[in-house]
């Protein structure tokens, strides 16, 4: 008779939760009220944080894990999954978030890194992790460390979708390139990607990452979300784009609709009507290099 002892924190249940989020929109929220608005608008999960990336960018200083009271308040308010951010490499912030019973930890470049060499050893945790990546090698290094979901980084807090486009295109095109290689070319490919050979082999065989791939960083309109989906994302994160806009509840619902019917331009057009002001935004090209969050993490 097969074993019926429950096994917690397996790869399948960690990666499986991300599978359940596919086709959905994950929204940044800084209060329980915003979390409720996001849930009512059709968010598939919320990301609890103290300041949205646009404010982190505007105010500067060191950005850290949010106050546990704030995260707890949001967990108590909504029934959808709650994610929260830990600094890159800050395994104690991650331990704290696990005790708070968040559903996913985002080891995020939006916060100030705590370790410029090592990321968190994510295999040690029962709670799953999502990590950012700008290319396939970075994605596979994070998966090798135990990430159960990947999001392309984009440039958070800008409302400029160009970096998100660049990163999802890069990851997708590198996957396609692996798929067309012969087996004996994969050794050099692994070297060049700086990624573990076994994962490179797996991607070449399946033509996909072994975990769910969302996109993030600069998505501000229904059309932005639909474009990310057409480029092959499994879903989208929207950070500052919702609660830094003129009408958050309507914009949130509109982005949800556009993410579902991303291939139907008339549905995306309908979703785009009458939303008022989008977030003002900053052009990524105007950002001095030290202020580009996507360059954090390696």
């Amino acid at each position: 008779m097969a074993d019926s002892t429950p096994q917690l924190g397996t790869d399948r249940v960690k990666r499986g939760l991300a599978e359940m989020l596919k086709g959905g929109v994950i929204m940044d929220v800084v209060t329980a009220e915003q979390a409720k608005i996001a849930e009512d608008a059709g968010a598939v999960a919320v990301m609890a944080l103290e300041r949205v990336p646009a404010d982190i960018r505007a105010q500067g200083g060191v950005a850290r894990m949010s106050d546990p009271d704030l995260i707890q308040g949001i967990i108590d308010t909504v029934s959808i999954p709650v994610m929260a951010k830990a600094r890159i490499g800050h395994f104690v912030e991650a331990q704290i978030l696990e005790t708070l019973k968040v559903d996913y930890i985002d080891e995020s470049e939006v916060l100030s890194p705590a370790d410029y060499v090592n990321h968190i050893d994510k295999w040690k945790f029962t709670v799953p992790f999502v990590c950012g990546a700008t290319n396939l090698g970075e994605a596979l290094r994070r998966i090798n460390e135990g990430a159960a979901m990947i999001r392309s980084k984009g440039e958070a807090g800008t409302g400029d979708v160009s970096e998100a486009t660049k990163h999802i295109r890069k990851i997708k095109s590198e996957i396609r390139a692996l798929s067309s290689m012969s087996e004996d070319e994969l050794y050099v490919a692994a070297k060049e990607l700086q990624a573990p050979f076994a994962l490179v082999q797996e991607v070449a065989r399946t033509g996909a990452l072994p975990v769910v791939l969302f996109t993030a960083g600069g998505v501000a309109t229904p059309a932005d979300a639909a474009m990310m989906m057409q480029l092959g994302a499994d879903g989208v994160f929207v950070g500052s784009g919702i609660f830094k806009s003129g009408n958050p509840a309507e914009r949130a619902a509109a982005i949800v609709k556009a993410t579902t019917f991303y291939n139907d331009a008339s549905a995306v057009a309908d979703a785009s009507r009458g939303l008022g002001e989008a977030m003002v935004g900053i052009n990524v090209s105007d950002l001095p290099a030290p202020h580009r969050l996507s360059e954090r993490g390696w």
């Binding site: 097969a2 074993d3 019926s4 002892t5 429950p6 096994q7 917690l8 924190g9 397996t10 399948r12 249940v13 499986g16 939760l17 967990i75 029934s79 999954p81 696990e98 019973k101 968040v102 559903d103 996913y104 029962t126 709670v127 799953p128």
Partner: peptide, 17 residues
């Protein structure tokens, strides 16, 4: 009842009959 087992850290695999 939704989320009857709690949050994601309570998610599990098992074998059923």
């Amino acid at each position: 009842r939704r989320n009857a087992f709690g949050s994601q850290v309570e998610s599990f695999e098992t074998t059923l009959h």
